[in-house]
């Protein structure tokens, strides 16, 4: 072109080349991780699909692979996640609201903030030991669903708090000022405006942490969930098992049939996870539409 010199053109070509190179690199990284995930899923599906039927879902575990099923683990997981949600959502969201909206921003709140961030990085087995010492032994709740749920809640609380605080922080100050200038109290402002506006973000954090809780095995083993459960828990004080433990248990068996059962168990676990994420996306899109 007439308005650029040769040197400028060369420079521009170089810059475009660099941009293309970087885009290619990003695409390569993205697609290779997707590919690896795809291969894993494919392998799991090949191994497990043949075992996946209503009987598998509706049977208790057994010594005989063709009679073994995942019923007690699936129900145990449902119980555990419901309890964890019931404990961790109110506690986590209230904590986040307190820290963001009410607590004086000082040294103490800074200290709490740093500690919560640190807690999010503590290995899950440590929470298991804590749960064993505090809930199972000290509070004598035994190896029950409620012990497991409390331990899991401790594990995911830091994540819920951090995600909720981020979501609350994205609510513009102008909305708070608008409410306060109408003679609203801090609580009315928070309840009617801040919480609804940050709800989609909070939901995302909650679902992500519940998904993590669903896959965790170590702390549940630590507090002593059973590996062989031939009954359904009827209440929070009953003993239980969960999907991840059932899978772990099957993988540890020498017979190859049990490995295939584990693959089928993984498919069920993934299906539950997908269902949860889909629910989250649905709730989010619905509330976002209401806001707009």
């Amino acid at each position: 072109m007439a308005f650029s010199s040769e040197r400028e053109k060369l420079n521009l070509r170089k810059r475009h080349a660099r941009a293309r190179g970087f885009a290619f690199l990003c695409a390569l990284v993205t697609w290779s991780s997707v590919l690896i995930l795809g291969i894993l899923l494919f392998q799991v599906c090949i191994d497990g699909f043949g075992w996946l039927d209503w009987e598998f879902i509706n049977s208790f575990p057994s010594r005989f692979p063709d009679r073994a099923g995942i019923k007690s683990a699936l129900v145990g997981t449902m119980w555990l996640i419901s309890l964890v949600a019931a404990i961790s959502i109110p506690v986590g969201v209230s904590t986040a609201l307190y820290l963001e909206e009410f607590a004086a921003k000082g040294r103490l709140s800074k200290l709490i903030e740093v500690n919560i961030a640190n807690l999010a990085g503590v290995p899950s087995i440590v929470y298991g030991i804590l749960g064993l010492a505090v809930f199972v032994r000290y509070f004598a709740l035994g190896r029950s669903l409620i012990s497991g749920a409390l331990t899991m809640s401790l594990l995911i609380l830091p994540i819920i708090i951090i995600a909720s605080r981020e979501a609350i922080r994205t609510v513009p100050m102008s909305i708070r000022y608008a409410a306060l200038s109408l003679g609203a109290t801090r609580w009315q402002t928070t309840w009617a405006h801040v919480l609804p506006a940050s709800f989609p973000g909070i939901m995302t954090g909650v679902i992500l942490s519940l998904s993590r809780a669903i896959g965790e095995t170590a702390p549940i083993i630590m507090i002593g969930a059973l590996t062989f459960v031939a009954f359904l828990p009827a209440g929070p004080m009953d003993s239980f098992t969960v999907l991840s433990i059932q899978i772990y248990n099957w993988v540890a068996r020498p017979q190859p049939e049990f490995h295939d059962l584990a693959a089928a168990g993984i498919i069920v676990l993934l299906a539950v996870l997908l269902l949860m994420n889909a629910t989250a996306i649905y709730i989010r899109s619905k509330t976002e539409r209401r806001l707009k």
């Binding site: 102008s174 909305i175 000022y177 608008a178 506006a197």
Partner: peptide, 19 residues
Amino acid sequence: PVEVRRRIGMVFQKPNPFP
């Protein structure tokens, strides 16, 4: 202060309707 703001209203620089 809640009572003060209830009697003395305010309009801000940027329009800030509730969503």
